[in-house]
């Protein structure tokens, strides 16, 4: 599948934003984070900005962005519509919880409930995003049980790194935040390794034989294309990354998204609060890059059934 940059930016930025918002909400409601104005302003502001950038960029790849409001109507059947509804609905508890924190310095009582709703809705929205991909039967690299947990854990892990950074900035950092981020990164790494192993070993069910129904006569081979130039289907679904490059990029993603941030977090945990800010910033930067590469691969390694007709093998 063609890795559209707007969609990569959307899923990585909004994933991290929702992760940060959910964690801020949970820790604020639990009284772990103080209800101080600037912490709330910067933390929630950063989360909302990431989500908003993501949502805006996702409209860039639409043919008719001015009609985007229509995408909220079909939530009964469409995960894309559900995601839109959930994303917009999430802003309501965020607003209540944010007003309580930033303007009234209160994250208890009703505002704690709003915080809980924020966390739940952030979770629901990321689930909807993941399900857009996981529900497509045409792409086996997406249509599996690992897509949804990977989206959730990577969103939370990048959000946790941002939490380390923001809390260090305002002197309310706790080692538990770094431990949480590290734990999520380890889980994320395990999920991605399982995912890559799965897509490498799974036997595709469809072949040119089943696609044309001619398999019963023997081996089927594409002799002539229907046209001489690339059509929409080939440009959109036909993007393929060479196996060699995919291997290398998996290593890059693994190092930047998991290994390097884990080392930096370990250093931060070991060396004490003073070094958390620079180390956390580096870890966040590295993970941000890594998650973009991971998302790019998620698209580039995805093979679409329709390309079988165009002679794709394997």
């Amino acid at each position: 599948m063609n890795p559209a940059y707007s969609v990569i930016l959307f899923t990585t930025a909004s994933g991290a934003g929702y992760g940060l918002l959910a964690l801020l909400a949970v820790f604020a409601a639990a009284g772990v984070l103080p209800a101080s104005t600037w912490l709330g302003f910067v933390g929630i502001g950063l989360g909302v900005a990431l989500v908003a950038v993501g949502l805006l960029s996702s409209t860039f790849h639409l043919g008719r962005p001015e009609r985007a409001w229509r995408a909220f109507t079909q939530w009964r059947s469409s995960w894309l519509a559900r995601e839109g509804v959930a994303a917009v609905a999430t802003f309501v508890p965020i607003a209540v919880f944010g007003i309580g924190w930033v303007f009234l310095n209160d994250t208890s009582g009703a505002f704690a409930w709003a915080a809980a709703a924020t966390a739940v809705m952030a979770f629901v929205t990321v689930c909807c995003t993941a399900m857009i991909y996981a529900s497509l039967k045409t792409i086996r690299q997406w249509n599996n049980a690992l897509t949804l947990p990977a989206y959730l854990v990577l969103g939370l892990a990048t959000g946790a790194l941002l939490l380390v950074l923001v809390s260090a900035l305002f002197g309310v950092y706790r080692p538990a935040f770094a431990t949480l981020a590290a734990t999520l990164l380890v889980v994320g790494l395990a999920l991605k390794i399982a995912y890559w192993r799965h897509i490498d070993t799974e036997q595709p069910r469809s072949t040119l034989g089943t696609a044309t129904g001619l398999g019963r006569f023997g081996e089927v081979r594409l002799l002539e294309m229907p046209h001489t130039e690339e059509n929409f289907i080939m440009r959109e679904m036909g993007y393929a990354v060479a196996r060699k490059h995919a291997r290398r990029l998996r290593v890059v993603a693994g190092l930047a998204l998991f290994v390097l941030p884990l080392i930096l977090l370990a250093l931060a945990l070991w060396s004490g609060p003073a070094s958390v800010l620079p180390l956390g910033a580096l870890a966040t930067l590295s993970a941000g890059l890594g998650v973009a590469v991971e998302r790019w691969l998620f698209f580039a390694e995805a093979t679409h059934l329709s390309m079988i007709y165009y002679g794709r093998t394997g």
Binding site: M1, H61, G63, R67, E236
Partner: peptide
Amino acid sequence: CIGCALCSWACP
């Protein structure tokens, strides 16, 4: 139609 292309992704 908003041209999101998702339907084309869903057609095998």
